[in-house]
Amino acid sequence: KNAAQIVDEALNQGITLFVADNRLQYETSRDNIPEELLNEWKYYRQDLIDFLQQLD
């Protein structure tokens, strides 16, 4: 998997990933985040941060 796929997957589930103060953050109206997504975000944290910062 790559960062773009993970960001896309999150968006499809109503979750927006973004970077604030060099930390990976998310916004969602969901009550909870599936644990497998959280684990994936932790595992790919630096890739996601790098990818999202390139988009800014």
Results as ranks from 00 to 15, higher is better:
K1D: 02
K1C: 04
K1L: 04
K1A: 04
K1Q: 04
N2G: 11
N2T: 14
N2S: 15
N2M: 10
N2Q: 11
A3Q: 02
A3R: 01
A3D: 01
A3M: 12
A4D: 06
A4M: 09
A4W: 11
A4H: 08
A4E: 08
A4C: 06
Q5N: 06
Q5D: 08
Q5H: 06
Q5C: 05
Q5M: 10
I6G: 00
I6C: 03
I6K: 00
V7W: 07
V7C: 04
E9S: 05
E9Y: 08
E9K: 06
E9I: 04
E9P: 00
E9N: 07
A10H: 01
L11Q: 11
N12L: 14
N12Y: 09
Q13G: 06
Q13T: 05
Q13A: 14
Q13L: 15
Q13V: 08
Q13E: 10
Q13N: 10
G14P: 01
G14R: 04
G14T: 02
G14W: 04
I15L: 03
I15M: 02
I15P: 00
I15W: 03
T16F: 15
T16S: 08
T16V: 14
T16N: 10
L17I: 06
L17V: 02
L17P: 01
L17E: 02
F18D: 03
F18W: 08
F18Y: 13
F18V: 08
F18N: 04
V19K: 01
V19Q: 03
V19I: 10
A20P: 02
A20T: 11
A20V: 14
A20E: 14
D21R: 03
D21H: 07
D21Y: 06
D21N: 11
D21A: 06
N22W: 05
N22I: 04
N22F: 06
R23N: 15
R23L: 14
R23Y: 11
R23D: 15
R23A: 14
R23M: 15
L24P: 01
L24E: 01
L24R: 00
L24W: 01
L24K: 00
Q25E: 10
Q25L: 13
Q25H: 12
Q25R: 09
Y26I: 06
Y26S: 03
Y26R: 01
Y26L: 04
E27C: 13
E27Y: 15
E27H: 14
T28E: 03
T28P: 13
T28H: 06
T28G: 06
T28W: 04
T28A: 07
T28Y: 05
S29W: 09
S29F: 09
D31A: 09
D31E: 12
D31H: 09
D31M: 06
D31I: 09
N32P: 12
N32Q: 12
N32M: 11
N32W: 13
N32A: 10
I33K: 01
I33C: 02
I33G: 01
I33M: 05
P34M: 04
P34Y: 04
P34A: 06
P34L: 04
P34S: 09
E35F: 09
E35T: 10
E35C: 07
E35Q: 13
E36Q: 10
E36W: 10
L37T: 06
L37E: 02
L38W: 08
L38E: 06
L38F: 10
L38K: 07
L38N: 03
N39A: 14
N39L: 14
E40L: 12
E40V: 08
E40R: 05
E40P: 01
E40I: 08
E40Y: 05
W41A: 02
K42C: 11
Y43D: 09
Y43R: 11
Y43P: 03
Y44G: 02
Y44S: 04
Y44I: 03
Y44R: 06
R45K: 13
R45G: 11
R45M: 15
R45W: 14
R45V: 13
R45N: 14
Q46S: 08
Q46T: 08
Q46E: 11
D47R: 07
D47G: 06
D47Q: 14
L48T: 00
L48M: 03
L48W: 01
I49K: 04
I49H: 04
D50M: 11
D50C: 07
D50P: 04
D50S: 11
D50V: 10
F51N: 01
F51E: 02
F51R: 02
F51W: 10
L52T: 01
L52C: 01
L52W: 02
Q53H: 10
Q53W: 06
Q53I: 14
Q54V: 09
Q54T: 13
Q54G: 13
Q54F: 09
Q54M: 12
Q54D: 11
L55C: 09
L55V: 12
L55P: 11
L55Y: 12
D56I: 10
D56G: 14
D56E: 13
D56C: 08
D56K: 08
D56P: 12
D56F: 07
